[in-house]
C-alpha cells in the first residue's frame, strides 16, 4: 500500500495587483496529495498558479491559507529540525538551467553544497566521493568537478542541477518545468534521465509543466489547473483518454502532434467530444 508523503490542503495565495484594481488570487483553495513512489503532474498555462504552488511548497513564498503536511508534520509551522529534514528530503529542480546554477561556483561546489550545509561533518574527500557518485548517476564524470556552469551545454547543466538535487538522497523531487528550456533532442535525454532516476531511487516526483506531451511521458496522475483552481484531477489514462473538463479538452486539442494524419484525427476527436 502506498502512503501519503506530501499533502497540500486548501492552499491559497493572493497577490496585490501591480496597478490599481483587484488583488489577484494566484492560488485558490488547492488541495492534493502525493503518495510515495508516484509521479504527479501539475499542469496549467501561464497564470494557472502552478509556479506559486511550487514556491509555497519549498518555502520561497508563504501561503495565505492552507497547510502543507510532509510525512506527518506541518511544514509551515515546523520546528528547526523538521524543517531541516524537509529541506534535505524534498528537492527542487528549476526550469532554466542557465539561471539556476551560480555561475561563480564549480560543479563540485554546486553539487556538494547540500552535503556541506546538511552534513557538515563529512570530510572534503567524503563529500567529493559522493558528488562523483551522483555525477556518474546523471551521466557526467569526476572530470567535470572543477568546471564552471558556463562550460556546459543546457542539457548538461540540467544534469548538474539534477545531481545537485539528488546528492542528499531526497525522497521527493519537485521538478518545475525541467525540460521546457531545452532543445528537443536534449529534452528527451533529460526526460529519460528523470524516468531512470525515479525508477532506480524510488523517488516520488511532483512534476510541474505546461507541456501536456511531456507530462504524458512521466506522470501517473494529473492535476489540471486554471486560474489558481484545480479543474480536473485523474489518472493519466483518464485525463488523456476521456478528459472530463472542457478546459482540459481544449488544452489537449491545442497541443500539436508531429504527425499530420494523427493531428487531423485528434482535432476531429476533441471537437466532436465537445
Amino acid at each position: 500500500m502506498s502512503r501519503t508523503l506530501l499533502a497540500v490542503d486548501g492552499l491559497g495565495k493572493t497577490f496585490a495587483s501591480r496597478d490599481r484594481g483587484e488583488p489577484v488570487k494566484a492560488v485558490d483553495d488547492v488541495s492534493f496529495t502525493l503518495d510515495q513512489g508516484e509521479t504527479l503532474g501539475l499542469v496549467g498555462e501561464s497564470g494557472s498558479g502552478k509556479s506559486t504552488i511550487t514556491r509555497c511548497l519549498v518555502g520561497l513564498e508563504r501561503p495565505d491559507t492552507g497547510t502543507v503536511t510532509y510525512d506527518g508534520f506541518d511544514v509551515l509551522r515546523a520546528g528547526r529540525d523538521e524543517r531541516r529534514r524537509f529541506r534535505r528530503e524534498v528537492q527542487l529542480v528549476f526550469q532554466n538551467p542557465y539561471a539556476s546554477l551560480n555561475p561563480r561556483m564549480t560543479v563540485e561546489d554546486l553539487v556538494g553544497e547540500q552535503l556541506l550545509v546538511h552534513q557538515g561533518r563529512r570530510s572534503r574527500e567524503g563529500r567529493r566521493e559522493r558528488v562523483v557518485e551522483v555525477l556518474e548517476m546523471v551521466g557526467l564524470t569526476g572530470a567535470h568537478l572543477p568546471r564552471y556552469p558556463a562550460q556546459f551545454s543546457g542539457g548538461q547543466r540540467q544534469r548538474i542541477a539534477i545531481a545537485r538535487a539528488l546528492v542528499s538522497e531526497p525522497k521527493v523531487l519537485i521538478c518545475d518545468e525541467p525540460v521546457s528550456a531545452l532543445d528537443v533532442s536534449v529534452q528527451a535525454q533529460v526526460i529519460n534521465l528523470l524516468r531512470a532516476m525515479r525508477r532506480e531511487l524510488g523517488l516520488t516526483v511532483l512534476f510541474i509543466a505546461h507541456d501536456l506531451a511531456v507530462v504524458r511521458q512521466l506522470c501517473d496522475r494529473l492535476l489540471v489547473l486554471k486560474d489558481g483552481r484545480v479543474v480536473e484531477e485523474g489518472s493519466r489514462e483518464q485525463v488523456y483518454g476521456a478528459p472530463a473538463h472542457e478546459y482540459t479538452r481544449a488544452l489537449l486539442a491545442a497541443v500539436p502532434i508531429p504527425d499530420p494524419a494523427a493531428d487531423r484525427a485528434r482535432r476531429r476527436h476533441y471537437q466532436e467530444s465537445r
Binding site: 528537443v184 533532442s185 529534452q187 528527451a188 526526460i191 507541456d211 501536456l212 506531451a213 511531456v214 504524458r216 511521458q217 493519466r236 488523456y240 489537449l252 497541443v255 502532434i257 508531429p258 504527425d259 494523427a262 485528434r266
Partner: peptide, 11 residues
C-alpha cells in the same frame, strides 16, 4: 528528432 518528440496522443 522525430522519435525524440514526446507525443500527447501516445503513452
Amino acid at each position: 528528432l522525430l522519435r525524440s518528440v514526446p507525443r500527447v496522443d501516445r503513452d
